[in-house]
Design a protein around this nucleic acid. Structure first.
Lengths: 131, 131
DNA sequence: TTTAACCTTTACGTTAACGTCAACGTTATA
DNA sequence: TATAACGTTGACGTTAACGTAAAGGTTAAA
């Protein structure tokens, strides 16, 4: 057998790949988000662990707390793929989408106000130049 | 003169109006975001102060830190309405808009994955029922 | 005059998400 | 054999944005 798809990772493999520190990864474990198997003392991460980590980081980018990400990961778990949990997950995502939409609307408002402010500012500058 | 538009506010007036605590308002002052005039010990807030507070809270909703909101407020200040500052403010807002757009894209990705997961889940449940 | 409803300052507490040591063990290489 | 280069477990530190409580001052109504 040739060395095909590497199916396990060390902690610094993952740290490098996702550009985070090993401390961060251990912290996620403390927080109950990861649970890699051990070989002696050392942590060995599987592809499944790697996917979890990916989900955590995506969750962060999306503004989920670690606790929420933990919920999401649990709900992604095939073991517990029942209807109620999937619906809870979908709700969480839809809520977040709505929040983001609200923020976009507020930003647009701010943009408009700013354009006005910008215009007033430009007008003033022009008047000053003409004098 | 009749009591027209009330032009000053107590700390709890503002707290009530914006549904925050007085502690929060004092904290914003500590952080250099507000600077109401005093009457003896007591803080008296003007309409301008009220607008600043509004901006701070909008900033929060938009995901700006207090430090960023302070910058924004300073840039809104008519005193300092120069071109460079206005451009800096516009840049900050555009950056935030881009961030939000990225988040929306990620959420859409997640939605798609979830729809697939949901479908797989529904399929499984159906199969189980048919047996 | 006491009670209630405000206001004030000072100061320590809290939570999330890590950072930053320290002190140590293991393995590979020069 | 020493010296990197990795890994480990504590354990305390940090930042932001307030919360919470103590201790007190003012004013108005009962």
């Amino acid at each position: 057998m040739s060395a095909e798809s590497q199916t396990t990772y060390t902690i610094s493999d993952l740290a490098r790949e996702f550009d985070i520190t090993t401390r961060t990864i251990r912290f996620y474990e403390e927080a109950g988000l990861l649970d890699p198997r051990r070989e002696g003392q050392q942590r060995i991460y599987s592809d499944a662990d790697r996917v979890k980590l990916k989900l955590i980081l995506r969750g962060k980018r999306l503004g989920f707390s670690l606790a929420e990400s933990r919920d999401i990961i649990e709900m992604y778990d095939p073991e517990s793929g029942n209807e109620r949990q999937l619906n809870a997950l979908l709700k969480k995502i839809r809520d977040r989408r709505e929040q983001l939409n609200d923020q976009m609307r507020e930003l647009q408002l701010m943009q408009m106000e700013l354009e006005e402010a910008e215009q007033r500012c430009l007008d003033t500058m022009n008047r000053n130049q003409q004098q």
